[in-house]
Simulated assay, not measured.
Amino acid sequence: MDKINVSDEQVRSVLRTVALERPEYVYDEQDEDGSCQYVNNGAPSCLVGHVLHRLGVPLDVLREREGDKALHVARDLLSVSDVTAGCLNRAQIRQDDGETWGDAIAGLV
């Protein structure tokens, strides 16, 4: 898949939008090894899975990247800066550590 041409601000805006739609949501759908799932039951699952899908990444591509860090997935699939890829990664880590989606983006967007 070619990288999706989006700006850093577009990615941060979508991250903010997704998180603020469910600011109190605590993600708890990790797989057996404790990793989050980008896709579950045919739909985006984790915070970054929702963001990437809204930016145009097909679910089958996300499913192929299960287990990969958000940092690498963002760098591989989006034309964004390392700072923005790192922002997605930090939000994902916070989510996986049990923070709400609202708290996961605090100070990042």
Results as ranks from 00 to 15, higher is better:
Arg22Ser: 10
Pro23Ser: 02
Pro23Leu: 01
Glu24Cys: 01
Glu24Tyr: 09
Tyr25Cys: 02
Tyr25Gly: 02
Val26Gly: 13
Val26Ala: 04
Tyr27Arg: 02
Tyr27Ser: 04
Tyr27Met: 05
Glu29Ala: 14
Gln30Lys: 15
Gln30Ile: 01
Gln30Ala: 11
Asp31Val: 04
Asp31Cys: 04
Asp33Arg: 14
Gly34Asp: 03
Gly34Thr: 02
Gly34Leu: 01
Ser35Arg: 12
Ser35Lys: 11
Ser35Glu: 08
Ser35His: 14
Ser35Gln: 12
Ser35Asp: 13
Cys36Glu: 15
Cys36Lys: 13
Cys36His: 14
Cys36Trp: 14
Gln37Ser: 10
Tyr38Leu: 08
Tyr38Ser: 09
Tyr38Ala: 11
Asn40Ala: 07
Asn40Pro: 00
Asn41Val: 04
Asn41Phe: 04
Asn41Ser: 08
Asn41Arg: 09
Gly42Gln: 05
Gly42Met: 04
Pro44Lys: 03
Ser45Gly: 03
Cys46Glu: 03
Cys46Ser: 09
Cys46Lys: 03
Cys46Gln: 08
Cys46Tyr: 07
Leu47Cys: 00
Leu47Gln: 06
Leu47Val: 02
Gly49Met: 01
Gly49Val: 02
His50Gln: 09
His50Asn: 15
His53Lys: 00
His53Met: 00
His53Leu: 00
Arg54Val: 02
Leu55Trp: 12
Gly56Met: 02
Gly56Ser: 10
Val57Cys: 02
Val57His: 03
Val57Glu: 02
Pro58His: 09
Leu59Lys: 09
Asp60Thr: 11
Asp60Ile: 05
Asp60Ala: 11
Asp60Glu: 15
Asp60Trp: 07
Val61Asn: 01
Leu62Met: 11
Arg63Pro: 00
Arg63Thr: 07
Glu64Asn: 12
Glu66Leu: 07
Glu66Trp: 11
Glu66Cys: 13
Gly67Ser: 14
Gly67Asp: 04
Asp68Glu: 15
Asp68Leu: 06
Lys69Pro: 13
Lys69Asp: 15
Ala70Ser: 13
Ala70Glu: 11
Ala70Asn: 06
Leu71Ile: 14
Leu71Tyr: 15
Leu71Gln: 13
His72Val: 10
His72Pro: 01
Arg75Tyr: 01
Arg75Lys: 15
Asp76Ala: 06
Asp76Ser: 12
Leu77Phe: 15
Leu78Cys: 08
Leu78Val: 09
Leu78Ala: 08
